[in-house]
């Protein structure tokens, strides 16, 4: 809710509250004690509702239209990707909000730094937080690498080599050393598959986010991307790296939980949990 609508809603609710609060004083003799009591109760309820608008304006209409204990604030996607894939867009009541993201590629570990380098790095990172004149969000995210494609390639290769081995095994007159070599290759791909599947691979990524507001989607996206590019330049200068504006899949990993945790990892976790429950 924008500020004016919020104040208007508050005004209506508090007016109703004041009217019901005053009614016992004006017509209390006519409605009797029970009537006055009901007016007082309604006045207090509306006063609480009016005050609640300060914090819960986004829920007012949802509660009015609530069905079966479910209050729907919005049934739309929380955001959608900009046509160029370089920002995300959120539509407000009258304005459009766009946010762009800047990748901050830091590949150096503290274990590789001298003490004075660590002090400098910590100080420089604090300086990065002061780069933007508009609100900025700096995030460091640990997420699981999506190995689905890589695992699929290993599986395809394993199946291919297994097929060759099966054919050679069934073929009479095949030299033993050839069969042995192919068998070794099957074992190698098997071991690689097990090794890659055994542990989750995680990565730490840092990024900055800035937003802009505009009357149209194009205006908001352009301003957001310009701000992001300025910040990328500032961060690159401060940290001595090449920061860049993130796109599409990189953005989705930062925003969507199902991109942050790939489906294959989820399957493994579910299998592990169900095997634990079976054992118990």
């Amino acid at each position: 809710m924008d500020k004016n609508t919020k104040m208007f809603t508050f005004g209506i609710l508090v007016l109703v509250s004041l009217v019901f609060a005053i009614l016992p004083l004006i017509i209390g003799y006519a409605v009797g004690p029970f009537g006055s009591f009901v007016f007082a109760l309604v006045a207090v309820i509306f006063a609480i509702l009016a005050f609640s608008v300060k914090y819960y304006d986004y829920l007012v209409l949802s509660f009015v239209h609530m069905k079966k204990g479910t209050a729907v604030v919005s049934s739309d996607d929380p955001f959608y990707m900009a046509p160029n894939g370089n920002a995300v867009v959120v539509r407000g009541e009258t304005l459009v909000y766009a946010s762009a993201f800047v990748r901050i590629p830091i590949y150096e570990s503290a274990s590789e730094m001298q003490p004075e380098d660590k002090f400098e790095f910590a100080s420089l990172f604090a300086k990065v937080a002061t780069i933007s004149k508009t609100p900025m969000k700096l995030s460091v995210q640990l997420y699981i690498i999506n190995k689905d494609d890589y695992i699929r390639k290993i599986t395809d290769k394993l199946n291919q080599v297994q097929e060759v081995y099966n054919q050679l095994s069934n073929q009479p007159g095949t030299p033993a050393d050839k069969t042995e070599r192919i068998n070794g290759e099957v074992t190698m791909w098997h071991n690689l598959y097990d090794s890659v599947n055994k542990t989750r691979s995680q990565t730490l990524a840092a990024y900055a986010m800035v937003s802009a507001v505009g009357g149209t989607e194009e205006e908001a996206i352009n301003i957001a991307v310009i701000r992001a590019e300025e910040i990328a330049a500032g961060i690159s200068s401060v940290l001595g790296i090449t920061a860049s504006v993130a796109r599409e899949e990189e953005i989705l990993v930062m925003l969507e939980p199902d991109h942050m945790i790939p489906s294959r990892t989820v399957d493994e976790m579910m299998q592990y949990k169900s095997s634990e429950q079976t054992t118990v």
């Binding site: 009591f37 006045a43 300060k54």
Partner: peptide
């Protein structure tokens, strides 16, 4: 927000005697 809503509460308190034997209930509410 606080001032206006508390004024409403205060008016309810002022009008409590109109509720007769339910005055205490109104004050508590």
């Amino acid at each position: 927000y606080i001032g206006v809503t508390l004024i409403s509460g205060a008016l309810v308190l002022i009008g409590a005697p109109e509720s007769g034997f339910l005055e205490l209930g109104v004050v508590i509410i």
